[in-house]
Amino acid sequence: MVVFIVIYGFLKKVDIYDTFIDGVKESFSMIFNLFPTFIAMILAVNLFINSGVLDFILSFFESLFSLIKVPVEILPLAIVRPISGSASLAYLNSIFVKYGPDSFIGLLSSVIQGCTDTTLYVISLYFGSIGIKKIRYSLYAGLFADLIGIIASIIVVNLFFN
């Protein structure tokens, strides 16, 4: 893919070197924008996890989840994911610390994070920008797509890596 893009650009007579540098420069502003939300969310999420509240809450759901053979640890990810990308990334971070990225939970969480999006944020941003107040069924449809994504991830990860 890397080679393809570079050769394609060269053949189309694009100034590939300078363009690449420009693109990298743009990533700086993106990272700058990410940093404050990272700090805020890692602080909050880690407080919630390290204090033991999360384990306490999850223990209620454990038996239900073990019934369908799904690790209960993905529940917070599924709840937080549509609301805040940084918070779910912070939680994914803590899962990697605890279980490692190549564990079953690590793989499953990676796929869930990858195949869903911050539905609530996108809806408020896009509709807010053009002054739409009645969003009708868009929230249900968006969340339903996320739910399908999560169910599909569980099935696919089970088939691929178990």
């Binding site: 893009i5 420009d22 693109g23 700086f28 990272i31």
Partner: peptide
């Protein structure tokens, strides 16, 4: 932890954004 995370994901994002800029321009 936030700073660590940022430093680790930054290189990959930077590389990818450089490449896609070429894809965009071409």
């Amino acid at each position: 932890i936030s700073l660590d995370m940022l430093f680790k994901i930054f290189p990959v994002i930077a590389l990818w954004m450089g490449l896609t800029k070429i894809a965009e321009k071409s």
